[in-house]
Amino acid sequence: MTNAQFKDELIAYSKSIGVDKIGFTTADPFLKLKDRLQTQQELGYQSGFEEPDIEKRVEPRRVLPEARTIISIALAYPSKMKNPPKSTKEERRGIFCRASWGKDYHDVLRERLQKIEQFIQSRFPDERTLSMVDTGELADRAVAERAGIGWSGKNCAIITPEFGSYVYLGELITTLAIEPDVPITEQCGSCTKCIDACPTGALVQGGQLNAQSCIAFLTQTKGFLPEPYRKKLGNRLYGCDTCQQVCPENKGKDFHIHEEMEPDPEIAKPKLLPLLTMTNRQFKEKFGHVSGSWRGKKPIQRNAIIALAHFKDEKALPLLNTLLTDDPRPVIRGTAAWAIGEIGTIKEKNELEKAKNSETDEEVARELENAIILLENKQ
């Protein structure tokens, strides 16, 4: 079997197992990426979730010695929810980003990649393979760009001609030589809609993201959300889709190809108040299968409190007061204090002062003090 024949066979097989797009590139170093990553590191723009060793991120053969080819795959996910529940004054709702609507994409892509690995090894048992999704050493987007899956947009997402940027990416390194594909030329042109629409200005310029101020990153942090970003959060519980939603390349793009990626509306757009009283077990049972649950319930609950403040939901005040006095987690107590200041009136001042007198955590005490001042200024 020739290299070209096997490549055609592998492409056909990938389609049969539900891969929407597949591309091939060499295992040569990603030299341009190295410069970009070093700049990001120097500027403090990294999220901290990445592989810390830049050499491993740009040198595939450090990950798999004798690697010759990297295979990139993309699976399209929906951009629109069928029959989405409305967030009403009676029942306020938060929202998970589209990439966390269905089954955890890490699991979905790993299963496809494992099948491709098995397919290669069934034909070439002496060749080695290694697959990864999101948390591996290689940069998914850099691989996809060079493999011709799409171009790297100004919003730092891979944009495919077929599916826009609503795609999950994964890759597989192999010692097998396969003819590489031609990269797609960047097609954003003079458009800056994503940069202009970014709620926090995290898109510093086209193709450069300061992850530390990106809402998608901030929703995943476990500590106090810095004050300047709280009102930017809106009702987002996990992730942010703004830069994708405004992208002209995504207009009309909505694919419901994979059943496991279809959202359960009550999970993708859940009621906020019930979120705040969930036990760890209840949270895991309801949200454990989506990617947005990976940091546990605390960040989601903190974000839900901020969302209630965004809605100025007065019905939430009794529960927020309970969290303020009874919750063992300083981040939840402090965020509840801030939210009470945002939602409440001078009537809530006594409760806040009482809580401040018994509070032992400095950050929570500071939040209480600021909330009291805010309430006094509302008189």
Rank of each mutant, 00 (worst) to 15 (best):
T2C: 00
I11A: 03
K15Q: 14
D20A: 09
K21P: 00
F24A: 09
T26W: 01
A27R: 07
P29D: 13
L31S: 11
L33H: 08
L37I: 08
T39A: 15
Q46S: 09
S47V: 01
P52Y: 05
E55A: 14
R62S: 08
V63L: 11
L64T: 10
P65V: 08
P65G: 06
A67K: 06
T69I: 09
A74H: 07
A76F: 10
S79T: 15
K82C: 02
T88N: 04
T88R: 07
E90T: 13
A99I: 12
S100V: 01
S100E: 04
W101Q: 07
K103M: 14
D104M: 11
D104H: 11
L113P: 02
K115A: 08
I116Q: 00
S122N: 11
R123G: 00
V133P: 00
A139W: 11
A142R: 04
A142V: 05
E145W: 09
E145K: 15
I149K: 02
C156A: 11
A157R: 13
T160S: 12
G164M: 12
Y166Q: 10
V167S: 00
V167C: 03
E171M: 02
L176D: 02
V182R: 14
G189F: 02
C194I: 13
T200V: 12
G201Y: 04
L203T: 02
G206S: 09
Q208P: 00
Q208G: 00
C214S: 11
I215L: 15
A216G: 14
F217K: 12
P226Y: 09
P226H: 10
E227V: 10
R236I: 04
Y238F: 15
D241W: 12
Q244Y: 04
Q245H: 03
E259P: 00
E260V: 13
M261P: 00
E262K: 13
P263A: 12
A268P: 06
A268K: 08
K271Y: 02
L272S: 02
L272W: 03
T277D: 07
R281G: 02
F283D: 11
F287G: 05
H289R: 14
H289E: 14
S293G: 03
S293K: 04
W294D: 01
K298V: 14
I300L: 13
A304P: 05
L308I: 08
D313E: 14
A316W: 09
A316C: 10
L317M: 04
P318V: 06
P318H: 06
N321F: 12
R329C: 03
R329G: 01
I332W: 03
R333M: 10
T335I: 10
A336G: 03
A337I: 13
A339P: 09
I340M: 07
G341I: 08
I343N: 10
I346Y: 04
L352Q: 11
L352G: 09
A355M: 13
A355D: 12
N357W: 01
N357A: 15
T360D: 11
T360K: 15
D361R: 05
N370D: 14
L374N: 10
